[in-house]
């Protein structure tokens, strides 16, 4: 299932990844990604008929916490590393158009 990595794909994937590649980076990303995909495409030859996917190493299940409030005011710690903050809020560029 080799897939040709074209400019459109690179543009689409960088949007998904929220990355902005320079023109030369785009070219090398195209090469990288194609190479990586060639490399991983051999997986398609592996027979996995009837095999269930393993997203956790062990068969452990049902790990819970009880419904208890154990944290107190965390605003100071939460905002400690904020690039921009004001009155205990994080500040970001406007999220909606006026």
């Amino acid at each position: 299932m080799t897939k040709k990595i074209d400019d459109k794909t690179i543009a689409y994937v960088s949007t998904l990844a929220s990355l902005e590649l320079l023109p030369e980076e785009k070219e090398s990303a195209k090469k990288d990604l194609s190479q990586m995909l060639d490399f991983v495409d051999c997986l398609s030859q592996l027979d996995t008929e009837g095999v269930s996917p393993m997203s956790n190493v062990f068969n452990e299940v049902n790990v819970f916490r009880e419904d208890e409030v154990v944290n107190s005011d965390g605003s100071e710690a939460t905002l400690h590393n904020a690039p921009e903050k004001k009155d205990r809020y994080f500040v970001v560029p406007k999220t909606i158009e006026p």
């Binding site: 419904d67 154990v70 965390g74 994080f90």
Partner: peptide, 30 residues
């Protein structure tokens, strides 16, 4: 284990987990 209560000063009901701090991990409320 942060409170779900309404109101409260901004970001007062927060901890590393619910603010996505690096290295924090979720544990499900039963």
């Amino acid at each position: 284990g942060c409170s779900t209560a309404f109101g409260g000063a901004p970001n007062s009901h927060t901890c590393p987990v619910c603010t996505g701090m690096p290295g924090s991990l979720p544990v499900l409320n039963k």
